[in-house]
Design a protein around this nucleic acid. Structure first.
Lengths: 188, 188
DNA sequence: GTTTGGCTACCTAGTAGTAGATAGAGATGA
DNA sequence: TCATCTCTATCTACTACTAGGTAGCCAAAC
């Protein structure tokens, strides 16, 4: 079953944005990938800024769903954090791409102002989720050398995003693993 | 005293690259900033790829010098790491820009192949330096909860780069501080 | 008197975005 | 039942502009 054109455009745009950044792709690239004319894309996304917003909205929802899935599936804090680290690892496709938010960050001046809020909200969602999980860890004891949830959460998000950059630079998921090995070692 | 044109071009290119990424600036931008014609830039840097190489080479040297300065100035491992974290913090200019290597990573497909090697070498320089400092920490005891130097080093680099992304997204150095607070707390 | 470092003028290719036409599907109504 | 009307999703053809890069000229400096 073929996805509708709008979804195909979002899929194509997300893939190329995560590989090349927001300034690294054009409507012509999407047109070629999806198999419609460049002008027709404007029917679905009037401007490239609107496309960026739609991409971020969809990505935010997708990751939110993933966080819910992890929380529903993994009982302990340690296992939840392991699952999130694995999610970030897999998201790099062995160092071929980045999380959308990481890919957009360096291009923030080229992005519409509305993306500032969306990107902050996305990061806040993850940090809040992490704070809850680290708070749980204080009870279930599945994270060693634990400090405070509000200190651990932003540190882990930064570590994950930095590990993605490492993997992208080396084009190898092993770089991600080296960066996250210390944290993984703390999780029971 | 006015810097020579080539240096002015490198300065302008580095500033804009770190704010907008490699695909986010053009020769026209540099021409405006430096005050010469776009075509004249090609006298100094035949291609944009050559400019990228020169930028990375200069950046690598500059950071190498900084690492030497820190090692010469700070006696303990804890203080050396603190100084490096401060260096990465200041490099964001309060969340207005990124380290060149971070800014280039998402654009790696637009960059010449030679940059792959340069960027790997740059990262390796920092990781090696960190390994030495963490090895020192094992003797001088100025890093708490210490594991292995080869595990700590890539984790800290990822943390610093991720913290820069956080600061860039929020346009606020406070986001960098939140991400690095845990690590700072480990340093005596 | 050649090298340096800049200039004007241009090129080809590509950028986002617009205008206007059209094919086809579905509903409406005589 | 057939004609018309409307909407969706696409097309071709275009605009205005920007991209990196080139050719050839020229003035000043070494």
């Amino acid at each position: 079953m073929q996805a509708d054109t709008k979804t195909q455009l979002l899929d194509a745009a997300e893939a190329v944005a995560r590989r090349r950044g927001f300034d690294g792709f054009s409507y012509a690239d999407l047109a070629t990938t999806v198999g419609i004319r460049k002008a027709s894309i404007h029917y679905h996304f009037a401007t490239k800024a609107a496309l960026a917003e739609a991409l971020m909205t969809r990505y935010h929802k997708m990751v939110g769903t993933e966080l819910d899935r992890i929380a529903g599936q993994e009982p302990t804090a340690g296992r939840r954090l392991r699952a999130l680290i694995t999610f970030y690892r897999d998201a790099t496709q062995n160092g071929q791409q980045l999380c959308l938010c990481v890919a957009f960050s360096p291009s923030r001046d080229s992005l519409p102002d509305s993306l500032d809020i969306q990107m902050s909200a996305y990061r806040q969602m993850i940090i809040s989720w992490l704070e809850n999980v680290f708070a749980q860890a204080a009870s279930d004891g599945t994270v060693t050398y634990l400090t405070y949830a509000t200190t651990e959460a932003p540190a882990l998000l930064a570590l994950l995003e930095g590990a993605q950059l490492a993997a992208r630079t080396e084009q190898d998921a092993a770089a991600f693993d080296r960066a996250t090995a210390l944290m993984m070692g703390r999780l029971l």
